[in-house]
Design a binder for these strands. Sequence first.
DNA 1: CGTCGGGTTGATAACTTTCAAATTTCGTGG
DNA 2: CCACGAAATTTGAAAGTTATCAACCCGACG
Lengths: 243, 243
Amino acid sequence: MNIQNSPLTRKLGSYVVLSDNDLDVLAQLHKRRRIFVPGVDMIHEGQKNQPAYILANGWAISFKILRDGTRQIVDIQVPGDFLGLRSLLFRTSDHNIEPITRVEASVVQAGDLFDAFTRTPRLATAVLWAASRDEAMVVEHLVGLGRRDAAERTAHFLLELGARLKLVGLAKLDGYDCPLSQHVLSDALGLSAVHINRVLRQLREEGMLTFRNGHVSFDDFDRLVAFADFDVAYLDDYAPMLK
Amino acid sequence: MNIQNSPLTRKLGSYVVLSDNDLDVLAQLHKRRRIFVPGVDMIHEGQKNQPAYILANGWAISFKILRDGTRQIVDIQVPGDFLGLRSLLFRTSDHNIEPITRVEASVVQAGDLFDAFTRTPRLATAVLWAASRDEAMVVEHLVGLGRRDAAERTAHFLLELGARLKLVGLAKLDGYDCPLSQHVLSDALGLSAVHINRVLRQLREEGMLTFRNGHVSFDDFDRLVAFADFDVAYLDDYAPMLK
DNA sequence: CGTCGGGTTGATAACTTTCAAATTTCGTGG
DNA sequence: CCACGAAATTTGAAAGTTATCAACCCGACG
């Protein structure tokens, strides 16, 4: 694999210019590859001493299961994301991570990551920046669950996901491929699968967004952004740095 | 002030045994004190190069304002909490932090914190542990907003807050003083103020919890825990380590 | 060809918000 | 210490949003 084009490299590269040395160190982290398939947990709640992973390919979800069997998806993980950066340091994992497509991931042991950080502090900064950005997205997710109605929430969520994918070259301005089922979407957005379906229809009929056959199309990006009250800075802040 | 009894010291002390050196370094971080009063933001969305704060006294909230003027509270900050640990490192703040009581906080500049970490790695571990624990609580908050109904969500939230306060010696097993208004509570729980009022009445009439006159009483702790599906490990995991 | 998971739709029920108004609490100045 | 006004709490009624239940459709796959 060419480390220059890995999703993580693209993402970090949008934040800082990576030197050859940075790239070398980054490549070291990708030594151990592992494949996961849907139905097999990558990380299970309660497990100890998990390694972290860098998602190279495929999508995963992190979630919690409630007493009544429903689940709440906390975050969607896409290529270039770090998984379990926190649980690397701290006791048992408090949530599950499960692939929803076939997933290729690099296994990162705690020691290797710290070594890498020692060898290039700039890489450490970039990784922490990425982690912080992901955390900001969890916060935005929380805000949506608390204060946006179903349609705004759905629109906002799909826009944000697009912004995130664009960072790693997996989305275009007018849409992206999205392997999420409506059921998964409903578990992420705190809605019933039935209602998500109605919301998607509404957004489609109003000509703003089409979610169909594993593809999201922004049919009227500007109107969608206005409708969802989406902060385009998520896109603008980062895109220009790529140059 | 006696650093031994500061809320932060209590909290970190529940995780690791702090040496005299650790305590010295911790005391250094408390040099610059600052007072905030309700109505004046401690951190404002969009500001750059914020310092971080250690909350010594009083309560604060971090929140985002939406287009329609409603707000979603992301987290409640109580004594012993670090504020803005992330925004210390990364660009502009993406949320507001505002005191809801008179607040005393120590100002922590990025450099001072890194110095402290260099001088005692164990302190760094403890601080990161605390940060990670707070993050886990934000995730639990998100899960509640997505998948718990109003009553469960309220009960769970107040139990969690209690667990958190207990760590810093501000709660007993059967309750705690709580300066949150019902309106603030509603903004945290994604409900209307009217509905929160009804939910609190329900919990009170069922003999599980009383929220009144700035005080939360767990009238039937076990039943409340069962009702909210609260993970008591939040309490048990930490309390024994104090010994 | 039959089954199965995902998607779609209508009808009804449950939960939560909004609106309006009364009541209580609390800080402040007299 | 009391009076006053502002803010917080409380309650009822009506409206709005979302969930649940029940079918039905459809394409993938053995």
